[in-house]
Design a protein around this nucleic acid. Structure first.
Lengths: 333, 333
DNA sequence: GTGAAAGCGCTAACAC
DNA sequence: GTGTTAGCGCTTTCAC
């Protein structure tokens, strides 16, 4: 029913080996037979079945990328970097874990059952131990996140320093009451914790006492940002500035400030994190920390492919790429 | 090196057939052998190689979803609908075509080479003829778009009617000078053209002459929306309302209006399309047309899987799901 | 209830 | 330069 290499061979009057050689541009096929084979291939509309090929070659040339979510435009530039570095040698398969451990494990099955040759995690719910185990048997890498105690190829920014830079910019401008909107800390991901550490260090260096009242812990959602603003404004001494560990939270803060009649940029300054495209489009423009997303994507794939092709010992380093503070109207710092 | 079914069989003292039966929960294995086999499987850390299985079964249980881009949060709910309807029977592989024909064709190779069993296109650069050809040999479906003259499973909204609804809402409120921001019409995609048709029909019904001056043709980008506003405001009689065929264009229009000191909602009313999450978060909230994204995703996969499992004739219908006008501050219509 | 063996479609030794 | 053949890991028919 479906045309196979055998059918092509028969039709072209050659052996399957020859057809295979033509397919793979491997040595030793005369120009005329090659031409003839290619002709019949085209005529029969033949497409090699990769299941056969992959089984035989024990590789698929597919790389799995696990996204925590598809609602975040933050990942798009990373994905593009990944694609650009992978194609045409490898195909990139995107899957979403929805930050759910069960789902993530189901997706990692693709590594075990050989559907893919390697996987990149743009976030993970796995423990350092689990990651280390995986890294022993398979080609995996972490991008945008790090895992304390795990030793595997990791590409990220220095989240502590980035948060420190943003918060100390507030401090330099004389702000002392600085709010923090962050996650509840239950996550495995360290980027939030690192950002909080940077916030704390900046305060310390400026001799400002860390005030738990100025810390609002929630999830990543826009609506959480709104709640944060309302909470902060209910305080006897509301903060003059707010640092959010994600742009979406900053948007929530700003939107709610608008609803509560608070002037952003003057009365209250807000800084986000990630520099998603929305921060530029928003009114006011949102001050934020930019990650070199495209470069992170390229880097992680390039190094991962090196690992796959090398027979030598695997690269399990952590690569830190530079971040940048982007100043816009929401906080002229 | 890697443990195979053979190794498991040997270790468990049974035949590979028995191991396979256990793996597939197929009939006729005694409880004790099953238990023993499962035990050795666990002990050896065995994972079946799907390349072998898939080759043998001639199916992969993978569905490819081709996204025009990953920068658009619009697709996220569709993707979730797709996943929810597919998993756990099928795995969903996301790939991005970047609206590029070459890339799209490269991705469709996965259909030809049997890496996936079916594909869903959330946009396409292919001609109706090409789609028809594909549909003959493979399981494919279109979601969010339609192709004139192509007969294949399609799930979409009535874009003409949706645009008509939005524009006639403006007309009902007494607006007569209504701008349109749309694509240049070079695309294969029909949704833009359909939306323009709805715009035109609404004007006609209200006896308003279509004025080419009020139509700004561009790409899908935010910056194009900004240009549109500047253009409209340069006209001797600027429009009182603007209908944009995408939310991102509407954001550009609103942002630029802000920069040019034009009051949105009163001086100029703006309506977008798609109801991406940003429209709710923006200041002002953006009036837009909502598509039932999650439901569209679920529907297309459900019907596609029916097609895959049926031996009868394939369903190549077009399913139209209901849209909804969402009124926010940018246009109180 | 279990095993032997064929074969899915392909590549790569090896032989000529 | 080309053909023959083994075998990648698995499922499934057919015996028993």
């Amino acid at each position: 029913m479906n045309v196979t290499i055998k059918d092509v061979a028969k039709a072209a009057g050659v052996s399957v080996a020859t057809v295979s050689r033509v397919l793979n541009n491997s040595s030793a096929v005369s120009d005329e037979t090659a031409a003839a084979v290619n002709e019949t291939i085209k005529q029969m509309g033949y497409s090699p079945n990769f299941l056969g090929r992959n089984l035989r070659k024990r590789e698929t040339k597919n790389i799995l990328v696990i996204l925590p979510s598809t609602e975040q435009t933050f990942y798009s530039k990373i994905i593009r970097g990944i694609q650009d570095a992978a194609v045409p040698d490898y195909d990139v398969l995107l899957c979403t874990s929805y930050s759910d451990l069960q789902t993530e494990m189901r997706l990692l099955e693709m590594l075990f059952n050989r559907t893919v040759d390697a996987a990149v995690l743009l976030g993970t719910q796995l423990s350092a131990e689990a990651l280390n185990d995986l890294n022993k048997k398979y080609h995996i890498a972490l991008c945008c996140e790090r895992s304390e105690g795990a030793r595997l190829l990791t590409v990220t920014i220095d989240n502590k320093q980035a948060a420190y830079d943003a918060v100390s910019a507030f401090l330099k401008k004389g702000k002392r009451k600085i709010g923090l909107v962050t996650t509840s800390g239950q996550t495995v991901a360290l980027s939030s914790a690192d950002r909080e550490e940077g916030y704390t260090r900046a305060l310390e260096e400026y001799g400002v006492k860390k005030n738990e009242q100025y810390i609002f812990r929630c999830s990543y959602e826009y609506t959480d940002g709104k709640k944060a603003l309302t909470y902060f404004m209910s305080l006897p001494e509301p903060p003059e500035a707010v640092f959010c560990i994600s742009d979406l939270l900053a948007v929530g803060v700003i939107r709610q400030a608008r609803e509560e009649g608070i002037e952003i940029g003057s009365e209250l300054q807000v800084c986000g994190f990630d520099n998603i495209s929305l921060t530029e489009m928003y009114i006011p423009g949102i001050t934020t920390v930019s990650q070199p997303c495209y470069e992170m994507g390229r880097t992680v794939i390039t190094k991962l492919i090196e690992n796959m092709q090398a027979d030598s010992v695997k690269n399990s380093d952590t690569v830190i790429l530079p971040h940048e503070l982007i100043v816009r109207d929401s906080a002229l710092i």
